[in-house]
Write a protein that binds this DNA or RNA. Structure first.
Lengths: 209, 209
DNA sequence: CCATAGCCTGACCAACCGGTCAAGATAATT
DNA sequence: AATTATCTTGACCGGTTGGTCAGGCTATGG
């Protein structure tokens, strides 16, 4: 991301502070949205003076953009599991597991993404139109091949993908609602049960099992 | 909602302006979140001076709370369809159709709800703990009865409900992402296909068909 | 040890925000 | 017509926000 080839120490300082700021920003943006988040809050959480934030990220929007892009990269990377699978049971099953794990480990990231898309994706529209569109097209072809090979029922691949995203990200984005209904945070067993439920329903739903 | 029993004309003015303000507020809150929304923006969209908003809704939070509650009422009401159904095919099928229709007609409301829950439900936590919890418990019993009667497979009722909410609301909350991938707004046929896909996958996923 | 480029930060500012208020307009009541 | 209750609104205010900047600090290369 940085374009200044400097001596090593300097680079370390920069990288460390940028990471610190990005982590704090992810949390604050997730908790308050872009408009509700303040640079002061992020600075306090990162343990740095506010002016230092503006040294690394000129504007609030620059910082926000970086947070959103990081999450997108995580999701894209996690999706590679699907490709080398022999069929939907393994491929989609593993994809569900991976996405549920991300919902559990990076709920803030998921929320920032949801916030961004909900508000018309003003910052990452280009990502939607390029990276996400390409990725989706590739996965649609994969699903169509599985259908043609008789490995699953004839379902619309796009809407299957939407359901996968919706069902898995719901556990991050609506985690608070789920925890309220669950009378407390989800335990390991709860998460296992959630993952199994989603896998079972969807894999049976597409006639793969 | 109002508690002042007045002569008719006055009441009409009040009701008309409150509706006007609430509609504008729903849109602005959906587009910008609570923190990003401004009373001035809502006032402009409603075509009223800002001070007039504060006459009807003392604070920004009062206005926001009313918007969220309205949406919640719509959802609760739409869910009654499930109860009088003989089995999951009719009950859950109709519920999916109703919720997809709401996602189509009230996407802004859905987004405001999502925004509120994502940020820890600071305003409607009591609703989650009372109304929603009761409603969920009732529906869980209904689903368990259907399972006991052999009308559907043994799935976890809570996670089935989460999947129903996730899959249907996704078309409102992530409508922008879907429209981008779809190269444009969804047509009547697109919505029909989406609804059918969700119904087919879920009903088969729970072994009801 | 010096010079320099990168890093740090307290103090500051213009812009904007939610909310107030007093005074005027309008409709209902007597 | 006079009185009263409700509605309307421009002007205003204290507090907060994103962003700036000058000047000090520190690591690094010569």
């Amino acid at each position: 991301m940085t374009d200044t080839p400097r001596p090593l120490r300097r680079n370390e300082i920069r990288q460390q502070n940028e990471t610190l700021i990005l982590q704090a920003a992810e949390k604050v943006f997730a908790e308050a949205g872009f408009g509700g988040a303040t640079m002061q809050l992020i600075a306090d959480l990162a343990g740095l003076p506010k002016a230092n934030l503006h040294y690394y990220f000129p504007t609030k929007e620059d910082l926000y953009r970086q947070v959103v892009r990081n999450i997108f990269e995580i999701w894209l990377h996690a999706a590679e599991i699907m490709d080398n699978a022999p069929g939907p049971v393994e491929g989609i099953g593993a994809y569900i597991e991976a996405k549920m794990e991300i919902s559990r480990r990076h709920p803030d990231g998921s929320k920032v993404w949801a916030y961004e898309v909900m508000h018309g994706a003003p910052v990452i529209q280009d990502y939607l139109e390029t990276s996400l569109r390409e990725w989706t097209a590739g996965r649609v072809r994969l699903i169509e091949r599985w259908i043609a090979e008789g490995k699953m029922a004839r379902v619309d691949p796009d809407h299957l993908l939407y359901m996968l995203w919706a069902a898995t990200q719901h556990y991050a984005d609506f985690g608070h609602q789920i925890e309220t209904l669950n009378h407390g945070p989800l335990t390991d067993a709860d998460w296992q049960k959630a993952t199994d439920s989603v896998k079972t329903m969807i894999l049976r739903g597409i006639g793969a099992v």
